[in-house]
Amino acid sequence: MLEIKDLHVCVEEDGTEILKGVNLTINKGEIHAIMGPNGSGKSTLSKAVAGHEAYEVTQGDILFEGESILELEPEERAHLGVFLAFQYPVEVPGVTNKTLLRQAYNTIAREQGREELDPLQFEDYAKDKLDLIDMKEEFLDRSINAGFSGGEKKRNEIFQMAVLNPKLSFLDETDSGLDIDALKTVANGINQIADEDKAVCLVTHYQRILDYVTPDHVHVMIDGKIAKSGDKDLAVKLEEQGYDWLTDVASVSVNGEQ
């Protein structure tokens, strides 16, 4: 579904290279987890996939369902079925969740040749999704993330994902800031949304969410590269030992390449 090939990404503004050759393949039906120290480039990777303008791809490619999406606008990627749950969800005062999501849902539906929903149909549809992650109805009519608690914002991202029903979801630290019950609810929501036709990539610092959402692959990103990949046991090892042992390996291999 997603193939990232030797991806190099710079900050548009000052040209600093953040991603230094990322390779990652995510297939239909898979759940991936990306871990790694602060500042290693996990969010940058997520945003590059979603098409954020601040990041310039200087080398490599991102293929979605076999086609390069580098030239596509963020909304065009969304139309194809790419979704990003933000590490820091943006507050948009004055625009309600319902307004945004109905417009987004219908735009995507139109682009994908599916039926659009009228306001009443959409309301019913959205309410089902709210139940899925145990959110109160009032959140539909509240301004997007405005005044939401940290945990509510994260939950709202998953709600949006549930409504838009994307093929590929990058969830950037959606588990951070959630209490234990909320974590279970959100994990449960993710499990219900993810089926054999979809793929999910969790960016996380904690092994805990992986107890509920079992990843098929775990990757460690260090200094703009995937330094190691493995199965869910890798996450357990990282939880116990941290990243030091990998940093050494990474730097050795960097040296080895030179």
Partner: peptide, 8 residues
């Protein structure tokens, strides 16, 4: 960007 990433 947030709104566009949702498909707008």
């Amino acid at each position: 960007f947030y709104l566009k990433s949702r498909g707008l």
